[in-house]
Design a protein around this nucleic acid. Structure first.
Lengths: 179, 179
DNA sequence: AGACTATACATCGGTATCGATGTATTACGG
DNA sequence: CCGTAATACATCGATACCGATGTATAGTCT
């Protein structure tokens, strides 16, 4: 599957899991969720809706437009609900490693009603964050911020470490409370 | 331009700015830099190289392979060097807002020898981080972690805030030292 | 009255990316 | 001596995404 695939589809499925929405409303919610970081073009949303509809994951019902053009109210089918739960339970590697995708996944993780499954997902992220990885290496050895003389590269490591720390603390706390 | 465009191209230009490299070596460096978050497929790298070559930004010189197949040693042309400096000086909006792209940009920002230009870029990121934005809203009002009852969504805000704090501190410190 | 914004969808061409697959060579462990 | 891994490139079909553009209607501001 294409790398970005799913970030948008995941958001669509996630929002519709709660309640039916028409495309325009969906777009506003997606923009609120991820738009400040990665805006979603309109010309990307509607084809994505069609894809999901064609795959049988969602159904549309046309309503007279409350304000303007007629609305297509979208709702998840049973297959769509299953698909979301599956994507949340067994996320792709990139959903775990890429912060943008991870946040999108987290935003809908509550839709898994199984606390064990939720904990499993958090544990995968925990494992990933604990892998010894850097952005810069000397041979195979990951370098620390202090070992670099480039202030901007130091910044990358400094910021990444702060994020990592905060997230590890949150993950551990949340894993405990999921017990 | 396509949203992701440039993250890869930026990395290619950035690495070659230092020294000439053949594709395979380039790939290893890019993988080290961003691979743990977002792996780059081989089938993406070579076409990207061709694009840049076609655009006159880099030149290739074939050498007998040291170990295996013949190498194509890539080096930036003058136009390529100008292109990188331009991309660093006037980054696209998405280079500022998307952490993945921002980190890639930061990794090569030292190639701007003008401290003012570097500071200008950091200031754009600073402005972005200071915009009042959340992932969740009540009407137009951004919600804080404490106002949510979903622990996973709380996590998103908690982590994002920690990152933001760390980065703001680093940005301010670095801006001072660039004076 | 006219301009503009928000609502609400849609199509289309261009392209960056992906996964699969292919082609060679060298080095190394069993 | 044989399989596997690493080196080093390349092509190709599928597709997700983008920007531009189009089509309506309703409300608001001037």
């Amino acid at each position: 599957m294409r790398q970005n695939t799913g970030m948008l589809e995941l958001a669509i499925l996630g929002f519709l899991y709660d309640r039916s929405l028409h495309g325009y409303e969906l777009r506003k919610r997606i923009t609120a969720l991820t738009g400040h970081v990665r805006p979603v073009a309109e010309s990307t949303l509607y084809p994505a809706i069609k894809r999901l509809e064609k795959a049988g994951l969602l159904a549309r019902e046309t309503q007279p437009g409350a304000v303007a053009a007629p609305r297509h109210v979208l709702s998840l089918t049973d297959a769509g609900r299953r698909a979301l739960r599956r994507r949340l339970t067994e996320p792709a590697r990139a959903d775990i490693t890429d912060e943008n995708r991870w946040f999108t996944l987290l935003a809908f993780l509550r839709h898994l009603d199984d606390a064990d499954a939720q904990a499993g997902v958090l544990r995968r992220r925990l494992d990933f964050l604990q892998e010894p990885a850097s952005f810069f290496y000397e041979g195979d050895r990951p370098l620390r911020a202090e070992e670099l003389d480039d202030p901007f590269r130091q910044g990358i490591l400094t910021i990444a470490r702060a994020t990592s720390r905060a997230e590890l603390a949150w993950l551990r706390k949340t894993l405990v409370s999921l017990d």
